[in-house]
Design a protein around this nucleic acid. Structure first.
Length: 899
RNA sequence: GGGCGUUUGGCGCAGUGGGAGCGCGCUUCCUUCACACGGAAGAGGUCGCUGGUUCAAAUCCAGUAACGCCCACCA
């Protein structure tokens, strides 16, 4: 098809999206005051965006999350609330450093070749490039962020916030330095926090190794220990058994010692409750420097910490002849050496989970080292309280439990990273006199002795800066406007994010905000969006290569389709199995919106609204019905209970627009427009319903709605849908009209009956048919009046020859009967069909109703049901029974007649 | 080891105590004047399994199976 824009039958997002977005930006609508359209006296609505990492491009999770945030922001903006969607990017310390290092590696360089300063410079260049791309992608999606105040976690003001937090916590004793077993990534050569380690199940072996005793005890000459890491035996400094294990009581009593193979180190056998007698041999080798449990055991029993690895997890000089081997090579070599000595007792197959770096998947080496920590328990207490007393709510609510579980078992947080990209730890050391302090300002000269001081080499965990995002982004602590900003617009309203960063990020924001901002929570609602999986239900990842690029989707379908399609799949329960083909449905929806609007425009040639805001003029039942349904839709969308039910909202919009508006109202409108008596009122109603529908659709589909709305003669003087009024429940409530809905239900029942009969017997719509309708329902008299009034509409929708409607009317000969909504619809088909088939069909219907009648009779004969069920439920059963019996009387008569 | 979630027509999913629904796909008919990315009419399900509570269970409870996710110092 070669469409010109004028007669195009499909919507082309590419033609309008970019231009509209630029217009919105230039108009300043995304500022808090919406370029003057906001009512600054209303409650503000603020969202802080989860800052995307500057490591790469946006993925489907971002597309979903940012669509949902934009929907909320746009609705609030149309409600005239002061809105601000604070946006920006995260420097993402370890992730970015890895990317930049990888780039250098491709040029044959390492960060050490560049040196710290030049490497950090290279990271900034990376950040400039990707930070800009990410912001461009947000714009492509139509996100109405406050781009004029874009934030970055390494901005000057932001850095001051980090300094203050660190220094305050340091002086309060909440930040401390200590020697601990930490998670060490030998590839990134940095410490990691506990929650930055992924545990992955691996198939491996359990090696049983004989450790010879220094001197035999009761004919026992060795103990067998079981281990998954034989190479660490080079750093063993003891063997532990359970004190109650009878197998080892003699050894313990004798104070037996072990001569460690390969190193000939003599180490003690110690007793500790920690050892599980059931596991392995009940004897465990103790390597305090390379295992968290052994570290504790070692401290308790005063065992030596013997570090056998370099930072890259290569065996160091302590390993003697194994020095220089990697962890894996050392394992093979140690096992081979032990085998040569006949000390491998046996080997079992074994499967257990191994900690891996969340950034590069390298196996973590537990490593004893000096690191900085935040003491968490004191910070967690008020944050737990805030969720308990409802100052913070989780959506879906079940995530609150996950939050509590983590907070109740919180452990100290390792915040130092041996990286170069990030916020350098603001602690200064004087090597001359031993002076140490944390400082918000850089220090060069030791205040104690005047010598030159040095700053700590390490940087802070990325999440240490991310945790300050809600308040550091508005200038806390020392921007002159910060306190004003915080007093008016804090806490923010909604924090929308993925569930895998509840601990890494959400919990820590709550804790730091409450500590520094006088016990104020950073946000009142936490929304955890579903995970976007591939169409088979697998997590999307680079390694699987199953990721989908949102910009490709925007290119293919347009931003509206992607946004609506994602939002429609949010149910609060299930993750989204994303299948690109499913977006066809929503592309068809935009086509439908486009063409329905085209129909409206095509019928407005003579429409003049005198420049006033178009208000509806319900004349026919169809008019009243569509306005009533519109009122119901508006109420549904405004119901607070549905705020996070994005799927339900999308479905309500979809079915209203397609099924109510397009399938029925537009069809009714065709005949109403042809009638001079109703033409003008119908035009008004079409314009009004479309106007309101576009407003309701705008948060999820900002582009197509704006494009149509700008051309629609609704009479609203506001220059953009972005800042137009959001429909209020109470404003639409006046159109609620149960009677009109009942009328249209009846009309639809009759029309459907006629159509299905035609379809069943393949009778052309052009063949006009005589029809007799016998009203038999509870409101038969009323139904007759309603249908009489609707006979014009009826004829327009279902071509009949001549119709009579009444109670106990004479049933025509040679006709078929269809039952619908308390009506017997008789359609005269003399000479057109074989009535035997019709009779068979009716018998089937009769039997089905008979079954249902029996079921209802049993129910109503049940004493328990009558006495215990709610009155309206009992009444409904009685009504249903009465209706079915009456229908079957009619059916039986008809069947007899056809015999 | 602990916790959470899912199981509804061929596929993807709504529905949380009283009539089993939506979209895709499928069948039949229709290109007339909003839209074939469309319209009309249909077929298709004993709601994983077992037991319990209840007058009444897809819906609540217990157990069970399969799948998925999270947490945990499983040498």
């Amino acid at each position: 098809m070669t469409d010109t824009p004028e007669n195009a039958k499909t919507y082309d997002p590419k033609a309008i999206e970019g231009a509209l977005f630029s217009k919105w930006l230039e108009a300043g609508y995304f500022r808090r005051d919406a370029a003057g359209y906001a009512d600054m006296s209303l409650d503000p609505f603020t969202i802080v965006i989860p800052p995307p990492n500057v490591t790469g491009l946006l993925h489907m999770g971002h597309a979903l999350n940012n669509s949902l945030q934009d929907m909320q922001i746009r609705k609030a903006r149309m409600q005239k609330r002061p809105t601000r969607w604070i946006t920006g990017t995260d420097h993402a310390g370890i992730a970015t450093q890895n990317r930049v290092e990888a780039k250098l590696a491709s040029e044959g360089l390492t960060r050490f070749d560049l040196g710290r300063e030049a490497f950090v410079e290279a990271c900034w260049e990376w950040r400039e490039l990707y930070g800009r791309t990410i912001i461009e992608q947000l714009k492509l999606m139509g996100c109405s962020c406050d781009y004029e105040a874009e934030q970055f976690t390494m901005d000057e003001g932001y850095n001051r916030a980090i300094r203050k937090v660190f220094v305050d916590w340091y002086h309060a004793g909440l930040v401390y330095r200590g020697l601990r077993i930490i998670n060490w990534c030998p590839r990134c050569t940095t410490a990691l926090a506990d929650d930055e380690v992924n545990h992955i199940d691996r198939d491996t072996h359990l090696w049983y190794i004989r450790y010879p005793l220094l001197e035999p005890v009761d004919n026992i000459s060795y103990v067998v220990v079981a281990t998954t890491r034989p190479e660490t035996m080079l750093g063993d400094s003891g063997v532990a058994v359970n004190p109650d294990d009878p197998r080892y009581s003699a050894l313990l009593k004798a104070g037996a010692q072990v001569r460690l193979p390969l190193t000939d180190r003599i180490v003690p056998i110690v007793a500790d409750e920690f050892v599980d007698s059931e596991f392995g041999t009940g004897a465990v080798k103790v390597t305090p420097a390379h295992d968290p449990n052994d570290f504790e055991l070692g401290q308790k029993h005063n065992l030596e910490q013997i570090n056998i690895f370099t930072p890259e997890a290569v065996v160091n000089e302590t390993g003697g002849r194994f020095a220089g081997l990697s962890r894996d090579d050392a394992r093979e070599a140690v096992v081979a050496a032990l085998e040569d000595l006949g000390l491998i007792d046996h080997i079992d197959e074994y499967s257990h989970s191994v900690g891996c770096c969340y950034r590069c998947d390298t196996i973590i080496e537990p490593w004893a080292s000096e690191q900085w920590f935040v003491s968490m328990q004191q910070l967690a207490a008020p944050a737990i309280e805030a969720a308990k007393d409802g100052r913070i709510s989780f959506h879906p609510a079940r995530w609150q439990k996950v939050y509590f579980h983590w907070m109740d078992n919180i452990r100290d947080w390792c915040i130092s990273r041996q990286l170069w990209w990030g916020h350098r730890i603001p602690v200064f050391y004087c090597d001359d006199c031993g002076w140490v302090d944390a400082s918000e300002q850089d220090i060069e000269i030791c205040p104690a002795c005047g010598a030159t001081v040095r700053q700590d080499e390490d940087v802070l965990d990325t999440w240490f800066s991310s945790q300050l995002w809600p308040f550091a982004t508005v200038g806390w602590p020392d921007d002159p406007n910060a306190m004003e900003e915080l007093s008016r617009n804090y806490p923010t309203q909604v924090l929308s994010t993925a569930r895998d960063i509840i601990f890494l990020w959400v919990a820590r924001m709550i804790m730091s905000s409450m500590y520094f901002l006088d016990n104020t929570v950073p946000f009142t609602d936490v929304f955890l969006h579903p995970t976007v999986l591939d169409r088979f239900g697998n997590i999307m990842s680079k390694s699987r290569g199953n990721g989908v690029d949102p910009t490709d989707l925007i290119d293919l379908f347009g931003a509206d389709v992607m946004r609506f399609g994602l939002a429609a799949q949010v149910t609060g329960i299930q993750d989204i199995k994303f299948d690109q083909d499913k977006l066809d449905v929503y592309r068809n929806f935009t086509t439908k919106i486009f063409n329905a609007s085209r129909f409206v425009f095509m019928n407005l040639d003579d429409f003049d609204n005198d420049g006033d805001r178009v208000i509806p003029e319900p004349v026919t039942a169809a008019d009243s019905n569509i306005l009533s349904k519109l009122a119901t839709l508006t109420e549904f969308l405004n119901d607070e209970q549905n705020h996070f039910e994005f799927g339900a909202q999308s479905r309500a919009l979809y079915s209203f627009f397609w099924n109510e508006f397009c399938d029925w109202y537009i069809e009714f409108a065709k005949s109403q427009l042809a009638d001079p008596a109703t033409r003008r009122s119908t035009q008004k109603n079409l314009v009004y319903v479309l106007d309101i529908a576009l407003r309701l659709l705008h948060p999820s589909m900002p582009f197509i709605t704006e494009d149509i709305w700008l051309r629609l003669p609704h009479g609203d003087q506001i220059p953009s849908l972005v800042v137009a009024d959001w429909p209020k429940t109470e404003d639409l409530a006046i159109y609620a009209d149960a009677q009109a809905e009942r009328s249209i239900d009846l009309l639809i029942a009759v029309v459907t009956a006629l159509r299905s009969t035609r379809a069943r017997y393949q009778i052309s719509p052009r063949t006009a048919l005589p029809v007799v309708i016998n009203a038999t329902g509870q409101n038969a008299a009323e139904d007759v009046i309603i249908l009489d009034k609707l006979s014009n509409q009826l004829n327009a929708m279902a071509n009949y020859l001549d119709i009579s409607i009444g109670i106990d009317v004479v049933k025509p000969e040679q006709s078929v009967m269809v039952l619908a909504d308390g009506l017997e619809i008789h359609i005269v088909l003399a000479g057109l069909i074989d009535f035997d088939a019709e009779r068979t069909r009716l018998v089937k219907e009769f039997e089905a109703r008979k079954k249902e009648i029996e079921r209802l009779q049993n129910k109503l004969n049940n004493e328990g049901f009558i006495t215990k069920a709610a009155a309206d439920v009992v009444q409904k059963s009685r009504d249903d029974l009465e209706r079915l019996i009456s229908e079957n009387v009619g059916l039986q008569a008809k069947i007899m007649e056809l015999q």
